[in-house]
């Protein structure tokens, strides 16, 4: 991991081990006016792939005051189809222009034809797809000349042909490609609940040293014939169970930059900010915890 960072170019504004927020266009002006105490911001680069216009100007303005992370949704690492070179080129241009401290992508796929689903579909966990994903991560890292983080997905179904546990596949993909991990604790909770997997086994398999970022978000619950399916819609506050998992995780394994994602039913900035402050307090306590252990 250390080697991967040093060989993949320089990072000009590191994202600190603090709480950050997903940047939404509805909040641009409040952030510029109020300069809230937020550790960093994260955006989907696909929302900044226009030729010009206000989004890029706002991002430039906010980037002056805050470290930035680019969280891509468009690479489709798990598609059998080749990566879209045009998309990669645009991603590279944004990386060069905004010099983000972190760049990440999902462990999923989104196109089976030339058209694009705009949803993140789960992978079949086999050696074949593992090799495919590793090759695609290599290509992305090669193009961007830097390490990326890969995020564990949330999912609602599993494929019969899967023969590797998701957490094993996830960690192995990072190890083989030299990528880091973006650990989405809400996704761990959602997927484990939806598939009856063990949360302890899942989190136990994730080496803390590879985790470069943590995601937290809200989800909703849909009833299917008496069974609850958790839907990862990023449309509410983080639920108490996920906060608890998060606190245990950072107390035991150490802190990492932590993002609050809120992408639907977007609230006033103040409400998002409240969630960010919760995460910040937990991060601070975890650091004190570790200091106590050391002393």
């Amino acid at each position: 991991m250390q080697e991967a960072i040093s060989t993949h170019g320089s990072v000009s504004a590191p994202v600190p081990s603090r709480a950050g927020a997903g940047l939404k266009s509805q909040h641009y002006q409040s952030i510029i006016d109020q300069q809230p105490d937020v550790g960093w911001f994260e955006v989907h680069p696909e929302n900044y792939m226009g030729k010009g216009g206000p989004p890029l100007r706002y991002l430039e303005r906010i980037r002056r005051d805050y470290p930035l992370s680019l969280h891509s949704v468009g690479t489709s690492l798990g598609s059998y189809l080749p990566l879209d070179q045009n998309h990669l080129k645009k991603l590279k241009q944004l990386v060069d222009r905004f010099e983000p401290g972190l760049v990440s992508e999902h462990l999923s796929w989104s196109h089976g034809y030339e058209w694009y689903t705009h949803d993140l579909i789960p992978l079949i966990y086999t050696e074949e797809t593992l090799q495919l994903v590793v090759d695609h991560i290599d290509q992305v890292q090669e193009t961007l000349q830097r390490q990326i983080l890969i995020e564990n997905p949330s999912s609602y179904l599993q494929f019969k042909k899967s023969e590797i546990a998701e957490q094993v596949f996830y960690v192995e993909a990072a190890k083989r490609s030299g990528a880091g991990l973006l650990l989405d604790i809400n996704n761990v909770f959602v997927s484990c609940s939806n598939h009856g997997w063990s949360i302890d086994e899942y989190l136990g398999a994730v080496p803390a040293g590879l985790v470069g970022e943590i995601h937290l978000a809200g989800h909703s619950i849909q009833e299917l014939e008496g069974q609850s399916l958790r839907i990862d819609d990023h449309g509410s506050t983080v639920c108490p169970e996920v906060w608890k998992l998060y606190r245990h995780y950072i107390d035991a394994k150490g802190t990492a930059p932590t993002l609050i994602e809120w992408d639907s039913n977007i609230p006033q900035f103040a409400e998002l900010y409240r969630e960010v402050r919760f995460a910040e307090v937990y991060l601070q306590r975890a650091r004190e915890c570790i200091r106590d252990v050391i002393s």
């Binding site: 705009h118 949803d119 579909i121 609602y156 019969k160 849909q222 299917l224 014939e225 069974q227 399916l229």
Partner: peptide, 25 residues
């Protein structure tokens, strides 16, 4: 459907994705 792990809800689980595709876009 034969490719999906069946727990009695495979079709409904698939339909979450079908619905997402229509709603998100």
């Amino acid at each position: 459907l034969d490719e999906l792990l069946e727990d009695g809800l495979a079709l409904q689980r698939f339909n979450v994705y079908r619905n997402n595709f229509i709603v998100l876009n």
